[in-house]
Design a binder for these strands. Structure first.
Lengths: 191, 191
DNA sequence: GTCTATAACTCGATAGAC
DNA sequence: GTCTATCGAGTTATAGAC
């Protein structure tokens, strides 16, 4: 059993707070309070707020890679794509309350014109590459990347509307529609 | 020619700043500076930041109503729906830089757990009702509202990805795909 | 030396008195 | 319309505890 460092504990709490309250709205005092350490101590581990953001983005990229790798246990690419789409249902409570962690961070950093914005966008690229790999396995060739982006875009739209109207049934309907779109792609290919 | 009041000028500048920099990141000084008045003068017109937000939301609702009314000049409901979808192309420069004004405001207010969040969501409802009215004219009966929400969601997804990757060609592709979806609905109905 | 805590500094924000 | 108070943010400095 691994010992968790203060550095990690800060990153974990910051990750949650950045997601639930937003990057800018989260203060050092908030994070320090959540971790249970003093603000002064804080600076021993992170010199600036941007450093914490970098650590949070790194954490999220690692977590994303781990999640995608876990889904690879499904041998069927179609099932893997569904695993992705269905996060919207699995995480519906959090998404209705705070939106998509990746999408909302990108949206916020865009408005702040923050230097870390491109790094945050890379999280999306991880999903895109992984989804494209599945579409490639399904034989969609040079359309794989485009299909991947389409699925990402649709998911983001669902997440935005989910946090706006908080209609659980609607999320399920749209998830089904998106899955149907993928299946239709396959049908067109076969037919 | 109508005289513009200071009250209006503040609301106009706040509207722009809230869109481009975000609600929280925009300070009173920023707005006062943009309008060209002193901070003291400011408090004569708006007592709190929430009051300004209310005024901005009201402005946006009025602007939305005006835009939707203008599109009504197109007698064909299909063309009207296209007018909506094509805002993504018309406003692509701003959307790539700052996202969708309606979606990003809702996203931000959600995280801030702001009291004005439901009012901001009402702007979406204006679009939904209007789109639903068009789908109703096209004979989609009780599916009209759902179709309207679908179009809204797709548009929001495109806006999020547009501000993340800033790929103009992709926006055009997705806009075409969404228009194709609407036309396909019609084809299925006819066929 | 590494980790932690206290305290003080700077800056910019809201707020309000004049 | 200016000027100042106050608060909280990010940050730095210093010093104690392990």
């Amino acid at each position: 059993m691994t010992r968790i460092t203060t550095h990690e504990r800060i990153a974990i709490q910051a990750d949650t707070l950045f997601y639930e309250a937003g990057y800018e709205a989260t203060s050092f005092a908030d994070i320090a309070g959540a971790v249970g350490i003093s603000r002064g101590n804080f600076y021993h581990h992170f010199k600036t707020k941007d450093d914490i953001l970098d650590a949070v983005i790194s954490r999220r990229m690692q977590a994303t890679c781990a999640m995608l790798a876990a889904w690879e246990s499904d041998s069927a690419p179609l099932a893997r794509i569904s695993s992705f789409i269905r996060i919207l249902i699995t995480n519906r409570t959090k998404i209705m309350a705070f939106g998509c962690p990746v999408g909302t961070l990108n949206t916020e950093l865009t408005k702040l014109d923050h230097a870390a914005r491109p790094r945050a966008a890379e999280i999306f690229r991880l999903f895109q590459s992984w989804l494209a790999a599945q579409f490639l396995l399904l034989g969609h060739g040079d359309k794989a990347e485009a299909h991947a982006l389409h699925v990402l875009g649709r998911s983001q739209g669902i997440a935005v509307m989910a946090s706006t109207f908080r209609d659980e049934a609607w999320i399920c309907e749209e998830v089904s529609a998106l899955e149907a779109w993928v299946e239709e792609l396959q049908a067109k290919k076969a037919g």
